[in-house]
């Protein structure tokens, strides 16, 4: 079976499609969101690591609102041996390090600023994810209204 494509990650899970080189039969594998997060919670770098470990790396990179602004990012998995875990790690890493950022309107930003400062980064990120999932590249007050029920803003 040859790796054909990956989709996602969406909301923490992704699919990887394999294809038979002779008959073109395709098989898809879906990563489980909770299990993937559980493995990453243990500090495991899926697909292997190439950069040296930083002190308190798991703690700092897993904090949603931490004192240190720049969390450690997973290293590229070029050193990994397994193509499956390598692709998962590359896809998750790419999604985390190169996010497609929608543009915020002033009205939407004003609403974000009205909520407590410590949860602003998390809410902002969730709204951006919501917008991207729904094909919105500008976050205005209509998008905020749409997401209101889901996030309780």
């Amino acid at each position: 079976m040859a790796l054909k494509s990956t989709h996602g990650p969406f909301d923490g899970s992704m699919s990887i499609v394999y294809e038979c080189p002779t008959c073109s039969m395709q098989t898809a594998m879906l990563t489980n969101r909770a299990e993937t997060q559980m493995v990453r919670s243990l500090g495991v770098k899926i697909g292997g690591r190439t950069a040296p470990e930083e002190p308190m790396e798991t703690l700092r990179s897993n904090l949603a609102s931490g004192q240190e602004v720049s969390p450690e990012r997973p290293a590229p998995s070029t050193g990994g041996k397994c193509p499956f875990t390598g692709m998962v790690n590359d896809a998750i890493g790419a999604a985390e390090s190169e996010p497609e950022k929608p543009v915020w309107t002033e009205g939407a930003l004003a609403r974000i600023e009205a909520i407590p400062g410590y949860i602003q980064p998390m809410v902002k990120r969730n709204v951006e994810n919501f917008a991207l999932e729904h094909g919105c590249f500008e976050i205005d007050e209509d998008v905020m209204d749409a997401v209101r029920g889901r996030l309780g803003i």
Binding site: S41, G117, Y118
Partner: peptide, 12 residues
Amino acid sequence: FLPEDETPLVWE
């Protein structure tokens, strides 16, 4: 590691 006294511990 938490920036403000009001900041709860939330994991990314």
